[in-house]
Simulated assay, not measured.
Amino acid sequence: MHDVKMMAQIVGGSGFIAALDQSGGSTPKALKGYGVDESAWSTEDEMFGLIHQMRSRIVTAPSFSGQKVLGAILFEKTMDGDADGKPLPTLLWERGVVPFLKVDKGLEDEENGVQLMKPNPGLEALLDRAKAKGVFGTKMRSVINAANQAGIAAIVDQQFEVANRIIDKGLMPIVEPEVNIKSGTRAECDDILLTELTRALDALPDGRRVMLKLSIPVKADHYASLVAHPRVARVVALSGGYSQDEACRELAKNRGMIASFSRGLLQDLRHGMDDATFDSTLSGAIDQIYDASTSNCA
């Protein structure tokens, strides 16, 4: 059973979802962008400690609240950590921000133009732990590099098989089949993905819904039918390597889609900023992404 207030905010709220779920492979790059060089840590635990400090500073900043940030996607170690003496999911919801958890374990090598998710034998135990901590939903990522119908169908099938296991645990799955924005067949990937997602959504039983996290399509409003689909709670967009300005400009062309940005939110934040400058910079990013997410949702 989903929390009614959280569900109402995610389905009908005005704002966007912050992606704060960089995992082991992407953490060094995220820290470097934040102004923390690899020489600052010598072990993986120290590295994760530094990224936790960054995320804690973000979620406790005055501008980070449910007024414009509907939800936040956390990495597992972040979910298990504290900020201001409180568990992160608890702190987020006290600030009006719905907590989500990244649950995939990374990507397989490319085959048929796509990268499926790696096996995740501990998923059910992780979902139980997340539910107990007050997490509302999950996110899992696959990657599409080429317009291969069989490969894209396999990604969608895998995503929805796992999504149903997540729904069984009373959590809301965010299905994320990312189309690589550098793909030479990107528009064709969008077309195939739309067909395959529609097929999978139509097959969901009554009472089951998912969220979709998609790359911003080449053609504006390409995913309008997914936004309106009765089995879709919300369609959110990833920044996918776009800068903040580029991502917001492209997102605003797509009615009903809201942002779920990582780089597009964090790119101008730096470790050495004083608290006032840090919050002012974060507030500016939040305002820009909020505007792009709401200007197209009339």
Rank of each mutant, 00 (worst) to 15 (best):
E44F: 08
G272R: 12
L171H: 10
F261W: 05
G264P: 00
H222N: 06
E110G: 03
N254L: 07
I10Y: 08
D287S: 15
L282C: 02
N145I: 07
I10K: 01
I166A: 06
N164E: 15
I181H: 03
K139C: 07
I174E: 02
V114D: 01
S283G: 05
K102C: 04
S23R: 14
T78E: 00
M54N: 02
D206A: 15
K213T: 02
P62C: 05
R129I: 04
V179T: 09
I144V: 15
F16C: 03
V69M: 04
A220E: 13
A252M: 10
M1C: 06
G12P: 01
V11A: 15
D109M: 14
I192H: 11
M257Y: 08
I73K: 00
K213V: 01
R165E: 14
D157P: 09
R141Q: 08
V210A: 05
D109S: 14
G151Y: 04
T195V: 15
F75Q: 02
A153D: 13
D157Y: 09
I286M: 01
F16M: 07
D104E: 07
R199L: 11
D37E: 13
H222E: 04
M172A: 12
K133R: 14
M7P: 03
M47Q: 04
A154H: 12
L204P: 03
G256F: 04
G272E: 15
V236T: 14
I289C: 01
G81M: 12
A220T: 04
D190P: 02
A8M: 11
D45I: 11
L269A: 03
S23V: 13
G24M: 13
I167M: 11
A154P: 12
A19S: 03
F64N: 02
K213I: 02
A19P: 00
